[in-house]
Amino acid sequence: MKKEKPTYAALFAHTFTISAFTIGGGYVMLPMMRERFVEKLHWINEDELAELTAIGQSSPGAMVVNTNVLMGYRLLGFWGAVCALLGTALPPLVILSVVFCFYDAIRGNSYVSAGFRGMRAGVSAVIADTVIDMAAPYLKREKMLYIPIMVLAFVFAWFFDVNVAVIIISCGALGAIFGILRDRRRRSS
């Protein structure tokens, strides 16, 4: 099978189609990016995607736009980033402009809302599937150290509604501290 190479057009097309289906917010896009860019096209690997997502999440703005822009940079440099940006931003821009015009007609339609309700059920299944795949590697012995970070981040975000920026900064700091402790232990032994 001939593998598709990353080109400007391909990057635009793939980010565009993925973005057009992310109903229910940015995190739905992560599973789709994994399916497309990691598993199907092999443009980046699982670990790189996690890295780009972590950086994208630490910058202001929409996480998925940031992550796609970073992927564009990684694959094709500046113009790759621009293609990824436009590909990600155009679908919501176009779709929302259209919906804006027909909002009054759509709002009351029970079939439209039933369709969206069904899709939302599908979306929750898709994200749950991704969470399991993302969390599984942390059960390995050498990564177990990071499970407390994951649990704490979850507890603070879900139960205490702590701002994501605070969580990200704290977890980055914890990661740095873990590194310093590890270096010190290595030096003393």
Partner: peptide
């Protein structure tokens, strides 16, 4: 090291979104 700390946080945030 910093990124290794951020990655599990992203997993947690995706779980919150789910």
């Amino acid at each position: 090291d910093i990124i290794n700390g951020l990655k599990p946080a992203v997993v947690a945030l995706v779980a919150v979104a789910a």
